[in-house]
Design a protein around this nucleic acid. Structure first.
Length: 651
RNA sequence: GCUAGAAUAGCUCAGCCGGUAGAGCACUUCACUCGUAAUGAAGGGGUCGUCAGUUCGAAUCUGAUUUCUAGCUCCA
C-alpha cells in the first residue's frame, strides 16, 4: 500500500501498519510528538491500522487539531483520579469541548479543595506515564464488562449504541473507559492542564434524570498556552457587561424590585434612547414601516386564540388568576403579535396595501425561572423593536431578504456584525406536541427559510427544537464574553396565525385571501443589545452611542465661564457634554476622563479663552492639539451623524 | 426550577476558633488654582442582605428567606 504524506512524499509498506508505527518509521521525534492522525482528512486515533492507499497527516502536539485529543485524554485522567479518590463515584461521559473538556460523575459535589486534590492526583497519573491501549468487545461482552465494573451509565450508553456499532475501550494501566477515542499514546504526553470549575449537570441533559457533578477543565500543548488561555478568561471577566455596566453607572438592580428587572440610570437610558430613536426613524423613513402603540396586557381570551395560553402559560405573568370576585383574568404580554393583528384588521386591506409593515417599540414580560436571569441578557421585562409584516405568499421571499438586510445593516452600524452567526431554528420532529401545524407545514416553511438564506449567500447552521411554536426562525446569534450564545435578532415565518385570527386581504380577483406573516426584530432586545455593546467595546462605545461624548476640563476655576460657553455651543449642536469645574489638578481630571472611557475631553485655560479654542484629546487619537471651537463642533457632529466607528489608540 | 458558591462603607476587600467593625479608593470640607494618568490636611459614612434560633453576648454558629455568580435545565 502507498501512503501520501503531508509534504507530498510517499511511503510504501507491504503489510498493514498503524498510524503510530508509520510516524515512528518517519522519525522517532515525530512519533514522540504525535497526538493523532489525519487519514483522508478525518482525524483518527494513532492506533488506527491503515491497510490501503491513503493520504496521511500526522497531527503533532503543536497542531491545534491535536487539542481535542489532548483534552479528551485529560478527561480520562480526571476520571481515573476521581475513581482513585472516590471509588464509589460512577463515571458517565467526558468529551472535549470548545476551550477544554468536562467529565460528569455521579457523586457528591466537588469543592474547590476537591478540585485541587484531583489536580494533584492527575499530575501523579501523568507522571506515572501510563501507556494507553485500545481494545474492542462484542456488544454483550461489553455490557457485561461494564456491569461487572459497576458503571450503570456506561451500560446504558452501550445499550443505546446502534446494533452494528464498534464498541471500543481505552485502557490506561488499570483504568478502562468506554470511549470512541481518539487518544494520546500515553498519559505522560499531557503537558498543561487545569481544572476550572465544577457544577451540577443532568444525565443526558434531562432535568428528570440523575443529577451529576460536572467538572470543567482545559488542557493545552504548552504551559504558556494554558497561561494565556487562563489570562484570556480573566480579561473576559473585565468586559462582562454585568460588572462593567454597573461600574460605568449604566444600570442597577434592587433586591426589593426583583430579579430580572434592571433599572437604567440617566446614562444607560441615554444610550438606549439613542438606539431607539435611530432605529425608529430608520424603519419609518427608509424601510416602509408604520408604527403602532398597543396595550401591555390583555384578557386571557386573546392568548387562547393565539395559542400562548396552551403553549406558553408558564412563561406569562397572569393577573387575577384565582380571583373569586369575577374579575377578568388578564396576562401581561409576552409578545406583540396578536395586538398588531387587530390593528391590521381595523380596516379591510387590499393586496395593494401589502406588505403591511407594523412596528412597535414594545415592552414585553416573560416569567423566566429564577435561575435563568442574567444581567441584561435574560430579564423578565424587556423592550424590543418588534414588527409584524402582513404579506402575500408571493412577497415573502423578497420581504424576508429585506428583513435580513435591515438586521445586517443594524449590526454593521453598531460595529458588531463580525460577532454573529446565523441559525435556522427548526421544530423538533420528536416533540410535535410543542408545536402547531403538521409535518408538511414545518417542512415547507423550513425549506422556505433555507432557500432565502442560501439565495442570499448566508452561512448558517440548523438546529432542531429552536423554532417558535407557530413557525421556524432565522436567528442571528451572538456569544457573550463567557462564550454563551444568545439570540440578538429573530426573523420568523408564520403561515398559520392569520387564519386563526381571521385576517385576510382582498386579492386581485376581488376574493378574500389569507396572508402570511413575518415576525421580526431589527434591534432585538435593547437590554441585550446594550449588554452586547458593553462587552464588544469593553465600555469604549463609538462616540454616537456614548452617554457623555465630551467633557470640558478647566485648568482652574477662572475659566469656568468660558467652559460654559463652549458647552453651550456643543449642546446646541446636539452633543452630550459636561463640564468638570472641580478645583482638582488637570492631570487628575484627565485621568478620570480616561477611566470614564470618554471619547473626547477638551481642556480650556488662558490661551483657549483668549483665542476661542479648545485643546482636544480623544480615546482614538490621543492629543489632537488646539482647535477653534467651531471646528471641533463640526468634527464631532460629523462623527455622530455618520455613526463613525473609530479605531482606538493603544495606550 | 436544580446543584454549588457568595453577600461586611458608593467600589475593591480585610476581620470570622462568638465580646456590637477596619484599610485603600470614592465622597464632604478647608487649603492649593494647577497644562495631559493620582496636591495636601481634616472629616462624614456601615443596625456586617433580611428574618428567626442557639448564647450572658452573633458580622462570626444554626435554620429559613432574598439577591448575585457559575453550570445544568429552560429561552414561545
Amino acid at each position: 500500500m502507498k501512503i501520501m504524506l503531508k509534504d507530498g512524499s510517499f511511503k510504501e509498506y507491504s503489510e498493514a501498519k498503524s498510524v503510530y508505527e508509520i510516524a515512528l518509521d518517519i522519525s522517532e521525534g515525530l512519533a514522540r510528538m504525535a497526538c493523532a492522525g489525519e487519514v483522508d482528512g478525518k482525524v483518527v486515533d494513532l492506533r488506527t491500522v491503515i491497510d490501503k492507499d491513503v493520504t496521511l497527516n500526522i497531527i503533532t502536539a503543536n497542531d491545534p487539531a491535536a487539542l481535542p485529543v489532548i483534552r479528551h485524554t485529560t478527561s480520562h485522567v480526571l476520571a481515573e483520579a476521581v475513581k482513585r479518590l472516590r471509588p464509589d463515584a460512577k463515571v458517565t461521559i467526558g468529551p472535549s469541548i470548545e476551550d477544554g473538556f468536562y467529565y460528569d460523575f455521579l457523586t457528591d459535589p466537588f469543592s474547590r479543595e476537591d478540585l485541587d486534590a484531583l489536580e494533584a492526583e492527575m499530575k501523579k497519573i501523568i507522571k506515572e506515564g501510563k501507556e494507553i491501549s485500545r481494545f474492542t468487545l462484542p456488544r454483550e461482552e461489553a455490557i457485561k464488562f461494564m456491569e461487572e465494573k459497576g458503571e450503570p451509565f456506561k451500560v446504558e450508553l452501550i445499550k443505546d449504541l446502534p446494533e452494528d456499532a464498534e464498541i471500543s475501550f481505552y485502557d490506561q494501566g488499570g483504568f478502562t473507559d468506554l470511549c470512541a477515542g481518539p487518544h494520546l499514546m500515553s498519559t505522560k504526553n499531557i503537558k498543561a492542564f487545569k481544572l476550572i470549575s465544577s457544577s451540577m449537570a443532568y444525565w443526558r441533559g434531562k432535568s428528570d434524570r440523575e443529577k451529576l457533578q460536572r467538572i470543567y477543565g482545559t488542557a493545552f500543548n504548552k504551559k504558556e498556552e494554558l497561561e494565556a488561555h487562563l489570562q484570556k478568561l480573566e480579561d473576559a471577566k473585565m468586559r462582562d457587561h454585568n460588572k462593567l455596566g454597573r461600574e460605568m453607572g449604566l444600570f442597577l438592580t434592587a433586591d426589593v424590585i426583583g430579579q430580572g428587572l434592571p433599572l437604567f440610570t440617566p446614562k444607560g437610558t441615554k444610550m438606549i434612547m439613542k438606539l431607539q430613536r435611530w432605529i425608529e426613524d430608520l424603519e419609518d423613513n427608509e424601510w416602509g414601516y408604520v408604527r403602532t402603540r398597543t396595550p401591555l396586557m390583555a384578557k386571557s381570551d386573546l392568548y387562547k386564540i393565539s395559542g400562548h395560553w396552551d403553549h406558553y402559560m408558564d412563561g406569562m405573568f397572569i393577573l387575577n388568576k384565582d380571583a373569586e370576585d369575577g374579575k377578568e383574568v388578564m396576562a401581561l404580554r409576552p409578545m406583540t403579535c396578536p395586538f398588531q393583528y387587530y390593528v391590521y384588521m381595523n380596516e379591510q386591506k387590499s393586496y395593494r396595501d401589502l406588505p403591511y409593515r407594523m412596528s412597535e417599540t414594545s415592552t414585553l414580560f416573560r416569567n423566566e425561572d429564577s435561575g435563568e436571569m442574567h444581567g441584561l441578557t435574560r430579564v423578565r421585562q424587556f423592550t424590543i423593536t418588534e414588527a409584524h409584516i402582513v404579506l402575500t405568499p408571493e412577497q415573502a421571499e423578497e420581504e424576508l431578504t429585506r428583513c435580513v438586510d435591515l438586521a445586517h445593516f443594524v449590526m454593521k452600524t453598531l460595529g458588531i456584525n463580525g460577532d454573529v452567526t446565523y441559525r435556522l431554528s427548526k421544530w423538533d420532529p420528536n416533540n410535535k406536541a410543542k408545536y402547531e401545524g403538521d409535518e408538511n407545514y414545518w417542512n415547507s416553511t423550513q425549506q422556505y427559510l433555507r432557500d432565502v438564506m442560501n439565495k442570499n449567500g448566508i452561512v448558517f447552521t440548523e438546529e432542531d427544537g429552536e423554532a417558535a411554536f407557530y413557525g421556524p426562525k432565522i436567528d442571528i446569534q451572538a456569544k457573550n464574553v463567557y462564550g454563551k450564545e444568545d439570540t440578538m435578532v429573530t426573523i420568523q415565518l408564520d403561515c398559520s396565525a392569520a387564519a386563526k385570527f381571521g385576517m385576510y386581504y382582498i386579492d386581485e380577483q376581488g376574493n378574500k385571501a389569507t396572508p402570511w406573516i413575518i415576525h421580526r426584530t431589527s434591534m432585538g432586545c435593547y437590554e441585550r443589545t446594550l449588554a452586547w455593546l458593553i462587552e464588544h467595546y469593553a465600555g469604549k462605545f463609538p462616540t454616537w452611542l456614548c452617554p457623555e461624548q465630551v467633557r470640558i476640563l478647566t485648568i482652574s476655576e477662572k475659566y469656568n465661564e468660558y467652559a460654559e460657553k463652549v458647552k453651550a455651543e456643543l449642546k446646541k449642536a446636539g452633543v452630550d457634554v459636561t463640564v468638570d469645574k472641580r478645583s482638582e489638578k488637570i492631570g487628575y481630571k484627565i485621568r478620570e476622563a480616561r477611566l470614564a472611557k470618554l471619547p473626547y475631553w477638551v481642556i480650556v485655560g488662558e490661551q483657549e479663552q483668549a483665542e476661542n479654542l479648545v485643546s482636544v484629546s480623544s480615546r482614538f487619537a490621543g492629543n489632537e492639539g488646539q482647535k477653534p471651537v467651531a471646528d471641533f463642533v463640526a468634527q464631532i457632529v460629523d462623527e455622530i451623524k455618520n455613526k463613525t466607528i473609530r479605531e482606538e489608540v493603544n495606550e
